[in-house]
Amino acid sequence: MNGSRRFLASFLPAAALCAVVALAALLFADAYLAQVAFLTGITVILVLGESFAVGNMGQLLMCQAGFYGIGAYVSALLEMHGMPPYLAPAVGITCGAVSGLVVGLAATRIRGHYLAIVTLAIGVIVEELLNNLQGITNGPIGLVGVPTFFGPLNAGNQADYIVVVWGAVIVVLGCLALLRESRFGWFLRAIRDSEAAAESIGLRIGTYQVATVTVAAAVAGLAGALYTNYAGLLVPDLFSYGLSAQILATAVLGGINSFGGAVVSSLVFNGVPQMAQVTAFYQYLIFGVVLIVMMQFAPRGLSQIGVYAVSLARRRLLGWGAGQPNAATVRRP
């Protein structure tokens, strides 16, 4: 397969799924479901960034909530000082990217367990700063009265919100798929699979790591800016370590580096429980238990189960594809 076909193969199924979800939300959602649809879209963006970074870099980022919070707070503060809301996405992306760059540069030589711990610490630092820099962030009380795109969510504007967020999801998907199938993504995976080999052909590992963290942070920053302009209200608790853990968990459950898996897992583990109005308590419990069980038996997540189901169906029903290696067994992350 050449580059553009690879791109389409990774972009189209996930994008089509997103389009279907958005369309369903536009046609059938009442006010509550519209809210769920919007928040699920935000989750999908956050999970896509994490899944891209973890999957291609082979390192865990545990501070997506921090980047998300920076994007949200900066665009909120700028809008409260008169910036028009339509600039928010650009501001969110920029802020996320800059903070990602700073974190990436600080952690250029840090890998594996150590990087996971450092990013975890940075995520908690952001949350603490949002709480403690009271002169700017208004502390634990949070920012109230932040301007929004279309005013408070209601029957009249819910379609606009859904189009904006799911449109953003599809744009993010396109950008990440492009990156993944470009030389950049190729080199990233070379580094992930063997640092020594990648170094010996002249790849600068640190530079690629910084770039990937920056991309993941920019994506999270965008999610933050979009959220601000929907909620109109920000409190530090929204951007806690718990959220970073949930984002990581959702990405792992979907199958690291599987865009379709990221979307499905966000829908299954965030969208559906909210739709069914499952309390946060059960949602958390299901999350934890499913994550543990999945890691024991299918560490590559839903995408592994999907690949297995497809190959099983092919063999059982159609009798072809039997000779192909099962992609699920080829490589464990």
Binding site: L60, H113, A116, A245, Q246, L248, A249, V252, Y284, L285, F287, G288, V289, V290, L291, I292, M295, Q296
Partner: peptide, 11 residues
């Protein structure tokens, strides 16, 4: 590390 995140949530 990932399962311990799940364990933390479950507990």
């Amino acid at each position: 590390l990932i399962t311990s995140v799940g364990l933390s949530m479950a507990l």
